[in-house]
Structures are given as structure tokens and as C-alpha cells.
């Protein structure tokens, strides 16, 4: 006796959900709906808005490429420079320093490695705003600020750290490093631990010193992790916003603290110019995509494995 006779329901309808052609779509439906509503719709709407002048819910005007033409002013170039300067140092510092720490923590010479691992990870759990305030005061204007006291120990004059592009960027990088180093250390350690120990033993027998071991075994071994870390650091570098807001709030003395995201925010919310903000956002998207592509190609991500 078949199923439909037992339950009294039409066979076709019941089987629709069991149909192997339908089931996969049912399973991916939650993601698909989420993606369409939360990502794709705003994305398309941003593209459309970048060609509009929006003065309120009922006054939207198509203005062609005017937003893009007006965008490249001094403020935008300044924001671009700030972003690139930050992203560059962010990638350099946040790839290299955690790698050094990870190698040290992974070596057998360190006592209580898990204690140090958690210690380095703790800053990642703190609030950026709180950390920002602490850093802002630590690198304050007055000679009594902690950073200036430190300078005084070396006989250096007090510095107005957050007022100049280079020292401002230094504080920003320091904040990011302090906060995110632990996360990258964890990535690297997991990569390092996946390398079989007999490789090192063999190298030792062949007389390789620890620098050679690092260059010829550890580094190639963690290459996928390295690519991953660099990719997310590039992304994070270009998307950085909270850190600069925590240090400078809405102020941007001489272009020190305003990144492209900050500029987008300024345009959209402070000046209520959503059209321009959308255009800036799309230019940022293009930039990040280009930089990431170049970096992935350079690191051989798309090359076929031999």
C-alpha cells in the first residue's frame, strides 16, 4: 500500500519537499533569503543611490555621475592618504609582530605557553571605545601624559601625539597592534602546530639552525594561514573606523584621523548626503577589491597547487 493511500494526502504535494531537486534549495533558503535581504538589496540600492541626490524620503533626484565628479576634493584625497598609510603599516606590523610572538610561544623553551596565549588574547575582548579613551589620554597633549613622561626619561620634549599625521598614525597602529595581536598569534600558532615535528628533526640532523628552520619549514608551512591573515588585515585596515573615532571623535585635525570610512560617515550622517556617501562607499569597495586581488595574485593564491 502506498503512502498517499495511508495518509489520504495527494502524493505530489507531499513529495515536493522530499524531491531531491527541491530539498537543497529548502536547505539553503535561510542563507539565500538572508543574503538577498541583508546584502544584495542594500548593495544594489547603494549603487542606485550613488547616482542620486537625496534630501529626504520624498525628494530624490537623479543627478547622473555628479557625486563621483564632486568626490575627489582635498578632504577625500586626505582620507585616502590616511587610509593607505594606516593600511600599509597595519599589514606590515600586524603580520610580522604576531608571527614573531607565535614562533616564540610555539617553541619548547617557553614556560606556561597557554598562560601567555590567553594574556595576549585578552585585549581583543575589550571595547575599542574604552581602549581608545585610554590611548587618547595616554598620548595626551600635556607633559604629564604617560607617553610624554616616557619621552622625558630620554630627554625628549613633550609631543602633541594626536595632532600630527605620523605620530597620530603611530598611536593608531599601536592601538590596533595591542588589540589584535592576540588573534593573529592564535592563527599562526594553529598553523605552526599543523607542521609535522619530524621535518624539524630531519632539518636538525642535517645541521640547519633555527633561522633556517624558520625560513624553510615554518614559513612555507604556514603560507595558507599567512595569506589568510594578510587578507583579513588588508580588509580590516581599509575598513578601520572605530579606532579613529575613539581617538579623534568627529574631529579630524588637519586630516590626521579621518579614513575613507570616516569620510563616508561624515558625508552620509553628518552632512546628510546619502548619495555622496554611497558613491564614496563604492569607490572604497573598488579600492579594497583591487588591493586584495593584487595581493592574492602576488602571493600565488590562484596558481594551481603542484
Amino acid at each position: 500500500m502506498d503512502e498517499s493511500a495511508k495518509t489520504g494526502r495527494p502524493l505530489a504535494k507531499r513529495n515536493l519537499l522530499l524531491n531531491p531537486k527541491v530539498v537543497p534549495y529548502v536547505f539553503i533558503a535561510p542563507f539565500l533569503i538572508f543574503f538577498l535581504v541583508i546584502y544584495l538589496y542594500p548593495f544594489i540600492s547603494t549603487i542606485l543611490m550613488s547616482f542620486q541626490r537625496i534630501d529626504g524620503p520624498n525628494s530624490v533626484e537623479w543627478i547622473g555621475t555628479a557625486n563621483y565628479q564632486k568626490m575627489f576634493n582635498r578632504n577625500f584625497k586626505q582620507a585616502l592618504a590616511t587610509t593607505f598609510r594606516y593600511a600599509f603599516w597595519d599589514v606590515v606590523v600586524l603580520t610580522i609582530v604576531p608571527l614573531i610572538f607565535a614562533v616564540i610561544l610555539n617553541s619548547s623553551n617557553v614556560k606556561f605557553p597557554s598562560f601567555f596565549k590567553s594574556l595576549y588574547f585578552v585585549p581583543a575582548l575589550t571595547s575599542t571605545i574604552v581602549v581608545g579613551i585610554v590611548f587618547r589620554l595616554a598620548f595626551g597633549t600635556l607633559p604629564t601624559a604617560p607617553a610624554n613622561r616616557l619621552l622625558a626619561l630620554f630627554g625628549q620634549p613633550a609631543k602633541d601625539w594626536l595632532m600630527f599625521p605620523d605620530s597620530g598614525n603611530f598611536v593608531l597602529i599601536l592601538l590596533t597592534l595591542w588589540r589584535w595581536m592576540g588573534v593573529n598569534i592564535i592563527y599562526y600558532i594553529s598553523g605552526l602546530q599543523a607542521i609535522p615535528t619530524d621535518l624539524y628533526e630531519a632539518a636538525k640532523i642535517d645541521g640547519a639552525n633555527s633561522v633556517q628552520q624558520f625560513l624553510h619549514i615554518s614559513l612555507p608551512g604556514i603560507k595558507p594561514v599567512l595569506i589568510y591573515v594578510i587578507t583579513i588585515t588588508v580588509l580590516g585596515g581599509f575598513a578601520m573606523f572605530t579606532e579613529s573615532v575613539a581617538l579623534w571623535a568627529q574631529n579630524n585635525p588637519g586630516g590626521v584621523g579621518r579614513t575613507i570610512v570616516g569620510y563616508m560617515y561624515l558625508m552620509g550622517f553628518y552632512k546628510n548626503n546619502m548619495g555622496m556617501a554611497s558613491a564614496v562607499g563604492l569607490v572604497l569597495l573598488g579600492l579594497v577589491l583591487a588591493v586584495n586581488l593584487i595581493q592574492l595574485i602576488a602571493m600565488g593564491f590562484f596558481r594551481k597547487e603542484d
Binding site: 537625496i54 529626504g56 520624498n58 553628518y270
Partner: peptide, 26 residues
């Protein structure tokens, strides 16, 4: 105000920002 939903009845708007809300259809 942009979406026409969720606005309060009374609101304090800072002077530097006020002009933003006097654009288009007020």
C-alpha cells in the same frame, strides 16, 4: 526621518546639524 519611521515626537537637534533636517521635504 529619511525612512519616515521610528522618529520621536520631540527631539533636540544641535545647531550645527539643524540645517541637515531643513533640506527638501521638511
Amino acid at each position: 526621518l529619511q525612512t519616515g519611521e521610528g522618529a520621536p515626537d520631540i527631539v533636540d537637534i544641535e545647531i550645527n546639524m539643524f540645517a541637515n533636517y531643513l533640506k527638501g521635504d521638511i
